[in-house]
Simulated scan of single mutants.
Amino acid sequence: MAASSGSGSAGGQPPVIAVVGPTGSGKSDLAVDLALELDGEVVNADAMQFYRGMDIGTAKITEAERRGVPHHLLDILDVNEEASVSDFQRRARAAIADIHRRGRRAILAGGSGLYVRAALDVLEFPGTDPEIRARLERENDAAGTGPLLERLQDVDPVSAARLGDARRIIRALEVFELTGRPFSSFMPSREYFQPAVQIGLDVDRDVLKERLADRVHRMVDHGLLAEVERLDAAGLRRGRTAPRALGYAQFLKVLDGEADVAQAAEETIVATRQFARRQLTWFRADPRITWLGWRDPDLAAKAAALCR
């Protein structure tokens, strides 16, 4: 049975803590601070940090920065594997249950909005059918996305209005054929699966813009191109998720001679700022999040007080 949308604990079970916000806002550091304060462990909810070897370009927290706090769901996939929200939901909930069973606090940290929702909220995932998907992909290759989108408009106008790329349109049609239900009916409601507290990092957008630019330049200085080259040799382009990651998509162009390092860095900065805006829009829409100033000197103490 689902927990209510409130944040109180039930039957002595402590609420899951989630630290959310845009990229570059300090989520990883705050999660570690809370873990040290509350005897907790961190569960990663950044989809691109699932990948082994994608360290520099994802600003993955280092062993030193973890300060001895156990971290879960980092480095669980090879770059040629596809990240799955449903698989993450299963893994994250298992990790959270294990942490709680050992009497510690589970702290979810990440900016991948749907992954956070999958861990925290009542969210059902429809199955897949490779034959249906392959047939729809062949139709898309033959006639383009237009006819598929028209078909989706007839059976699921909500998804048709929301989805723009072929991959998602094909998925929505696959789900309808498989279940007889519109894909939009599987979208999450704001109802917690188990008690939870969400803390959002409230940023100064102008300061964040400059911080993100500085971070990309540091990634370049620390060897982002070499990391992308190494992962390319390991099968990065064969993946469906990893090669689209910020920085990696842009620096693959450098390897292909389509851009130089300066151009790739600038494209990465622009894309990262756009991503941060989308993250803020996503998380701001959730009224259950308590927002704290990212530069508040008492941030860790105020966040811990919310979780006690």
Rank of each mutant, 00 (worst) to 15 (best):
M1W: 09
A2I: 14
G12R: 07
G12Y: 00
G26E: 01
K27P: 03
S28E: 03
L30K: 01
D33I: 01
E41G: 00
Q49I: 07
F50L: 10
G53N: 07
T58Q: 11
I61A: 05
E65T: 00
H71S: 02
H71F: 09
H72S: 01
D78L: 11
E81F: 02
E82L: 10
S84M: 03
S84H: 05
V85T: 13
V85E: 07
A92P: 06
A106D: 05
A109L: 05
G110T: 12
G113T: 10
V116E: 07
R117N: 13
A118D: 09
D121E: 15
L123W: 15
L123K: 10
R133V: 13
E139H: 08
D141Y: 04
A143P: 00
T145G: 00
E150H: 06
R151H: 09
D156A: 02
A160W: 01
R162Y: 06
L163W: 01
L163T: 02
A166S: 10
A166C: 00
R167C: 00
R168H: 07
I170Y: 02
E174S: 11
V175M: 03
F176I: 00
L178S: 11
R181H: 10
P182V: 01
S184V: 04
S185W: 02
F186H: 03
P188I: 09
A196F: 04
L201I: 05
V203E: 02
V207W: 10
K209T: 13
A213K: 14
R215G: 12
V216F: 12
H217W: 15
H217K: 12
G223L: 01
A226K: 13
E227T: 08
L231M: 12
R238K: 12
G239F: 05
T241V: 11
T241C: 06
P243N: 08
L246R: 15
Y248R: 07
Q250H: 14
Q250M: 13
A259D: 09
E266V: 10
I269N: 05
V270M: 10
A271I: 10
Q274N: 14
F275A: 13
R278P: 01
F283N: 04
D286S: 08
W294E: 08
D296F: 03
P297Q: 06
D298A: 14
A301R: 12
A303Q: 03
A303P: 02
A304H: 02
